[in-house]
């Protein structure tokens, strides 16, 4: 923590000091950097995002180009033990129609990451908002929680079908086929996965709002908005982080299920989940086809989890001081 010598850390969490803001975030970053897992996660996440964003541009092979003469190529490593059908042109191999697996993994990652992050953030924002409001304002609790029950009970498949029916063509006309479907999928996944977060946040808020420091804040007339942002939200952060991590994985996998049913992206649009699902029947002959997308999903989720852990530690003043 050499950077901090010029600025001796103030007592953490002290809300009175006006200049503390910048230093506080500096502290958070310093604490975050000391968390090895979180830094590894962050590096991986930046790496995989760059791989997916910049990769296709550098690699130059279109993921949907068919090269049927070069189908079923194995990854280049197989050349080490003398497997014949490998090619430097396709280092990750090709699929059963001769599409380049590396290009597909990159392109798939773009969509999966975009869908995963957006849907997860949407779900977390809705869930946290409803949870906090329901937990804090007893008048709204009943109504919001019955709404949550309703959403929990709705079957996903008919819901998506109805959304497709009502909104696909207008969205397609307004944003184009791909963006329209993207919006539809993200909203579909987002509005069907916020309920757990809402229930958890509400449960925690119900307990927290009876704690002494919240009662004290309220008794001196702190407005509700401030009580929520200042005292409640920071204390429900850790379950929200867990929900976010799990939600990212769920969103990526749900997208593949939705596309698989023909309710998502066009069939020639690779996503990680779809690549994995397509590869499962052939996983004995071509294990690499399940390994690439499987690893990509798992490691991304793992990275996000570690970042979440690191953030949680970094944002907790009690830990940060130590």
């Amino acid at each position: 923590m050499t950077e901090n010598t010029a600025n001796p850390p103030l007592p953490a969490g002290d809300p009175t000091a006006p200049v503390v803001d910048r230093n506080q975030w500096w502290d958070v970053w310093a604490q975050f950097r000391s968390h090895k897992g979180a830094m590894a996660g962050l590096i991986f996440l930046v790496g995989i995002t760059l791989f997916c964003l910049v990769g296709p541009w550098l690699w130059g092979i279109d993921p949907t180009t068919l090269d049927i003469r070069n189908k079923d190529l194995r990854p280049i490593v197989n050349a080490l033990w003398g497997v014949e059908n490998v090619s430097w042109a396709h280092p990750f191999g090709t699929d059963n129609l001769g599409r380049d697996i590396m290009a597909q993994t990159m392109q798939g990652g773009r969509i999966s990451l975009a869908v995963g992050w957006t849907a997860m953030i949407l779900a977390i924002v809705i869930g946290t908002f409803i949870g906090v409001v329901a937990g804090y304002f007893p008048r709204l609790d009943g109504l919001l929680m019955r709404l949550t029950d309703l959403f929990l009970a709705l079957p996903l498949l008919p819901l998506l079908l109805v959304m497709m029916l009502l909104f696909r063509d207008p969205l397609r006309a307004a944003f184009g086929p791909e963006e329209g479907i993207f919006i539809l999928i993200v909203i579909g996944i987002g509005i069907t996965s916020w309920m757990q977060t809402a229930r958890i946040v509400r449960g925690d808020v119900l307990a927290l709002k009876e704690r002494e420091y919240v009662l004290a804040a309220r008794s001196i007339g702190t407005p509700s908005r401030r009580v929520i942002t200042r005292h409640l939200l920071p204390n429900v952060l850790s379950p929200i982080m867990v929900s976010a991590t799990l939600g990212l994985a769920t969103a990526i996998i749900t997208e593949s299920a939705v596309s698989f049913l023909g309710l998502g992206f066009p069939p020639d649009y690779p996503t990680w989940g779809k690549l994995l699902a397509d590869a499962v029947p052939r996983m004995v002959s071509f294990p690499e086809r399940v390994i690439w997308p499987g690893l990509a999903i798992s490691l991304t989720v793992l990275a996000v989890n570690y970042i979440g852990d690191g953030l949680r530690d970094a944002l907790d003043p009690r830990i940060r001081g130590q």
């Binding site: 994985a249 990526i252 593949s256 994995l276 699902a277 499962v280 999903i297 989720v301 793992l302 989890n305």
Partner: peptide, 11 residues
């Protein structure tokens, strides 16, 4: 647990 959660059951 993270690997377990992110590997879908169809796989």
């Amino acid at each position: 647990s993270m690997i377990g959660f992110s590997v879908p059951p169809f796989f």
